[in-house]
Design a protein around this nucleic acid. Sequence first.
DNA 1: AGCCAGGCTACCG
DNA 2: CGGTAGCATGGC
Length: 203
Amino acid sequence: MEQKLLSIYNSLLKKHGYQGWWPTNSRYHPKDYEHPYTQEEIFEISMGAILTQNTSWKNVEKAINSLKENNLSSPKKILDAPIDMLAETIKSSGYYNQKAKKLKKFAKFFLENENKTPSRDSLLEIWGIGKETADSILLYAYKQPYFVIDNYTKRIFNKFLNLNIEPYDEWQNLFHKSLQKDYKIFNEFHALIVAEGKTQRYR
DNA sequence: AGCCAGGCTACCG
DNA sequence: CGGTAGCATGGC
């Protein structure tokens, strides 16, 4: 299985090129995964992970820009803002009433746990954060080796490997057992899966 | 012009 | 427990 996964990784890399996520982190330099993030960057990446739930990244980018324009990008500002105003600001990302609530819940958590890497369980206790979002935050904001399983991953690997797995944890186990637990590999692999998922239809 | 997007919660049986 | 309605905008 390890060889199969690595060969898929390599063919995706060849096809799509180096992705270098997280996508909107302006300070990111490709091949500089070691570069530590500031608290601001960690918070912004986490907000993006929440906003992109079942939503195209284009719409999320608009919402993030709008948050910046309205001076709502710090956890404190998010907590202080009236929820209706926050919702209006992130309108383009869809489900904006729910997501405004989710951002506030996360902002509160973030302030209470400043400068600490959260545990997966503590993230899952937050209203609005499920497994995929928790793992995205851990992997992309905190550089922890959690493989992110999204719909693209399931569709693509069901097809490539002829599998038919459903539960999230089973999927994640497959990658965790077969690959070395290196956040840089998990990061790039998932980014490549998304690149593939966006250009191909797997239905 | 409908279908779909880097899900999650609440509620149903 | 597993299954599913509801949430909602914008791109193609």
